[in-house]
């Protein structure tokens, strides 16, 4: 059986009286890349904060390498790479200073990995973090994580503020790094594009609840989008048992479901609805995410 690197049990948290989630359970296995996806405000950063020991949940607990995240030992912290939302780093330092600072804390510090990335990005050692663009900052943060060589990476909304090129660069580097070293990654994002290139497992959250927990590829295999036209434009498909999400523009219907094309067609026929232009649409992860969570 694969070892669970992260294990969260019965997490419940409130901000004041506002419930964020109740009895949330999930685990991340060694060597897996798990993406926590959800809309803004559904509790992604809350989960990251709990994992990093910057928030005590109202109840439940999270374990990393078997240690409670409320009390991580220095050794466990050393195995853990952490990217703060917005690629925050010490802006008063320059490229050279920041490397010098971090190098003292990690036994396996890989200086070359960091400076190689910096030179590839044409970032000068004397350049200050505060004078960098968001994309450059992301590369500095990535370079530092690569140099640290952690066993577990926790990345909070790494895609924030990155243009598509930088995002792709980040994703590709991360995937290559994680897979080559059998590293475990837990990340959150509210931008789903490019995510299927990266993640193995997915945890999709909506306000107060978990919509999906499992393998990303399995999900993409089982989850479908169908479009068809009906004669009438006043049919409500949302209440059907097989519907996960449905939408309609005039008499053109979109249906997101775990059911097969035959099952959908049978359901329509059973209701006496004549359909035409019935098609299965090929989805990206982003499409599937919207299909699962709705557009708003």
């Amino acid at each position: 059986m694969e070892e669970n690197i992260i294990e969260c049990k019965n997490l419940t948290h409130y901000y004041g009286k506002r419930l964020i989630y109740e009895n949330l359970n999930f685990s991340v296995k060694k060597g897996h890349i798990m993406g926590l996806l959800g809309k803004n405000g559904c509790g992604k950063t809350t989960t990251i904060n709990i994992l990093n020991g910057f928030l005590q949940p109202r109840s439940g607990e999270c374990l990393i390498y078997g240690e409670s995240t409320q009390n991580l030992s220095p050794d466990t912290k050393r195995r853990l790479g952490y990217l703060i939302e917005g690629h925050i780093q010490y802006s008063f330092m320059n490229i050279y200073q920041i490397e010098k600072f971090y190098s003292g804390f990690y036994k396996n510090w890989n200086r070359e990995a960091y400076f190689e990335l910096m030179s590839r990005m044409k970032i000068l050692p004397s350049q200050k973090v505060s004078s960098m663009s968001c994309g450059q900052r992301a590369q500095v943060a990535l370079g530092l994580i690569l140099a640290q060589d952690p066993d577990l990476l926790i990345l909070d909304d790494f895609s924030l503020g990155l243009d598509p090129g930088y995002r792709r660069l980040f994703v590709d580097h991360m995937r290559e790094y994680a897979k080559a070293g059998n590293k475990t990654v837990f990340l959150t994002s509210h931008i789903i594009q490019d995510m299927e290139r990266l993640i193995d497992d997915v945890l999709i959250m909506d306000y107060n609840r978990v919509l999906l927990r499992g393998s990303a590829s399995e999900f993409m295999e089982k989850f479908h989008q169908f479009t068809f036209d009906l004669e009438r434009d006043d049919i409500n498909l949302k209440d059907e048992a097989l519907t996960v999400e449905a939408d309609r523009i005039k008499n053109h219907y979109e249906l997101y479901t775990y059911a097969s094309a035959e099952e959908v067609q049978a359901t329509l026929a059973a209701k006496g609805l004549a359909f035409s232009e019935f098609k299965q649409v090929k989805m990206t992860l982003e499409d599937a995410f919207i299909g699962l969570t709705g557009k708003y």
């Binding site: 910057f54 220095p74 050794d75 912290k77 952490y82 703060i84 917005g86 925050i88 804390f105 990690y106």
Partner: peptide
């Protein structure tokens, strides 16, 4: 002040020390 801005203190507290 530099630690408080953008909660950079989280980076410091993440260092492998108590």
């Amino acid at each position: 002040v530099p630690e408080v801005i953008d909660k950079r203190i989280k980076l410091t507290l993440h260092l492998p020390m108590h």
